[in-house]
C-alpha cells in the first residue's frame, strides 16, 4: 500500500463510513434536539432576566448580575462535571442529557442576559419618554417599545454566542450523552479506524457551517446599518 492509499484507508475508509453513518446520523439528531432546546431555553430565560433587571429592583438586579457573571466566568465543562459527578453522591440523579441541557442552557441564558441588557441600555432615553407620555405603563413601554428595538441589536452577537454554545454539546461526550462526537469515538474504537471521526467532523460542518455563514451575513448587515 502506498502512502496515499494508506491515508484514504485510515481517514476515508468507505466500508467503515457506510457502516457507521446511521450511528452518526443518530448522534446528529441528539445534537440538533439538544441545541434547539438549549437555544429556546437560553434565549427565553436570558431575555426574561434582562427584562426583570430593567425594573431596577436592587436585590433582584444584583442576583441577576451575579448569576450572569458566574456562568460567564466558569468553564462549562467544570460545571457539567460538578453537576454530573457531584449530585448523585448527594442523592440527586439526573440523566446526562438533562445535565448537559441544564448547564449549557444556563450558560447561554447568562450570555443572552448580558447581550439583551446591553441592547436595552443602549435604547435612547427619548424612546422610553415618548412611550410613557403616550400613556403606556412602564411594563408596556418595555415590552412594546424598548425590547423590540433591543432585540434587533442583540441578534448578531446572540447568534454568534448561540453557535458557540450549541457547539459545546460535544462536551456531552465526557458524561456519555450519545451525541455526534460520542457516536464517533465509540465507532472509532470498535472499528480501529479514524474514519468515524472524519465523518463526525463533516456532520458538525454540515450543521454549523450554514449557521456561521448566517452569522457573518447578519453581522455585515448590522455593520452596514450602523454607518
Amino acid at each position: 500500500m502506498n502512502q496515499w492509499d494508506r491515508f484514504l484507508d485510515t481517514f476515508f475508509n468507505v466500508p467503515v463510513l457506510v457502516q457507521y453513518t446511521p450511528a452518526i446520523l443518530q448522534g446528529m439528531w441528539v445534537t440538533v434536539v439538544l441545541s434547539v432546546l438549549i437555544v429556546i431555553f437560553g434565549v427565553a430565560f436570558g431575555g426574561a432576566l434582562a427584562m426583570a433587571r430593567s425594573y431596577g429592583i436592587r436585590p433582584l438586579s444584583a442576583l441577576i448580575v451575579i448569576y450572569a457573571d458566574v456562568f460567564r466566568a466558569l468553564p462549562p465543562l467544570v460545571v457539567i462535571m460538578i453537576v454530573f459527578f457531584g449530585l448523585p453522591n448527594a442523592g440527586i440523579v439526573l440523566s446526562s442529557f438533562l445535565v448537559l441541557f441544564l448547564v449549557l442552557g444556563l450558560v447561554l441564558a447568562a450570555f443572552a442576559e448580558e447581550i439583551f441588557w446591553a441592547g436595552i441600555t443602549s435604547i435612547d432615553r427619548g424612546q422610553w419618554e415618548a412611550a410613557r407620555s403616550s400613556g403606556l405603563g412602564f411594563s408596556q413601554a418595555l415590552v412594546w417599545v424598548v425590547v423590540p428595538q433591543a432585540a434587533r441589536l442583540a441578534i448578531p452577537p446572540l447568534t454568534n454566542r448561540a453557535i458557540a454554545i450549541t457547539k459545546m454539546t460535544a462536551l456531552g461526550t465526557v458524561i456519555g450523552v450519545p451525541d455526534i462526537l460520542n457516536q464517533a469515538t465509540t465507532a472509532q474504537s470498535f472499528s480501529g479506524n479514524a474514519s468515524p471521526l472524519v465523518l463526525a467532523a463533516l456532520a458538525y460542518v454540515a450543521l454549523f457551517l450554514p449557521l456561521v455563514i448566517l452569522a457573518r451575513w447578519l453581522e455585515s448587515r448590522f455593520a452596514w446599518r450602523k454607518v
Binding site: I163, K167, M168, T169, A170, L171, T173, I180, L181, L197, A200, A201, Y204, V205, L207, F208, L209, L211, V212, I213, R216
Partner: peptide, 10 residues
C-alpha cells in the same frame, strides 16, 4: 469559517 463550525473538542 471551517474552524468556527467545528467544536474545539472534536
Amino acid at each position: 469559517d471551517f474552524f468556527r463550525a467545528i467544536p474545539p473538542l472534536v
